[in-house]
């Protein structure tokens, strides 16, 4: 579903991403770990088509991102680190707005269902987003992804700044999304959350994907040790 082949991004002399080869299948959650500047966000931006690769190719659903930047948008959804939606509109209206933009038409009840699926409490649906916590805003972000029937979900530092409970809820929702067949790529610093939620984990350093492990094959402590050794 999500495929990088020799994906490279250089800024002048600096290589932000070097020869990345990576595949994320439907139903899989791939977590990218690494220090700041390791190339995680660059990878996500390349998949989003926000930047052009210097070499190699990023593909979504078999379509090249750089060649068909518009087409791939129908397959993917993206949630940035801080989800700021329109604070003047309610959660429901935000969802309605973005899904309409994506070309979907939902009734009010359908929209409400989507928000429930994303884990948002019913009381919050009709409140302005300005009053939402970060976790609640993220849930609206997830609902937007579900609403557009995204095959691919890209997440940048989704759990940073969330309290443990919210973070845990978020993992559950991600897992249920994956169970529906969504391919999920997330960049994170949170080793333990990555271990808990991801199917596979890649550790990056200086633009290179150093190692990839299956989450089920490794304990949290081993993962931390591997991480510290790699970076």
């Amino acid at each position: 579903m999500l495929e990088a082949t020799n994906l490279t991004k250089r800024y002048g002399n600096h290589t932000a991403l070097n020869q990345l080869n990576l595949t994320v299948e439907p139903g899989e959650i791939f977590a990218l770990l690494g220090q700041n500047g390791a190339g995680k966000t660059t990878t996500i931006n390349l998949f989003l088509g926000f930047i052009e690769p210097s070499e190699g190719m990023a593909q979504i659903n078999g379509v090249s991102v750089s060649e068909n930047p518009e087409e791939i948008k129908q397959y993917l959804a993206y949630i940035p680190e801080t989800v700021m939606l329109y604070s003047n509109l309610t959660g429901l209206e935000n969802l309605e707005y973005f899904s309409s933009l994506a070309g979907f038409e939902y009734s009010k009840t359908e929209l409400a269902e989507l928000l429930s699926t994303a884990g948002l409490q019913t009381q919050a649906f009709d409140l302005r987003l300005g009053g939402y916590s970060k976790g609640m805003r993220q849930k609206v972000g997830i609902a937007i992804a579900i609403a557009k029937k995204a095959k691919v979900l890209l997440l940048d530092e989704p759990t940073s700044g969330l309290d443990p409970k919210a973070s845990n809820e978020f993992s559950t929702i991600l897992k249920s999304l994956a169970a529906r067949g969504t391919a999920i790529l997330m960049a994170t610093h949170d080793i333990f959350r990555a271990k808990e939620v991801a199917t596979r984990i890649g550790i990056m350093r200086e633009g290179c994907l150093q190692s990839v492990v299956r989450a089920s094959d490794i304990s949290a402590n081993e993962l931390e040790e591997l991480y510290l050794r790699t970076v």
Partner: peptide, 18 residues
């Protein structure tokens, strides 16, 4: 500046319309 734009851009195939 507050980040909605990123979501908006990935939400729609038709940014022109937005």
């Amino acid at each position: 500046e507050n980040g909605v734009w990123k979501i908006l851009r990935t939400s729609t195939t038709n940014i022109k319309a937005a």
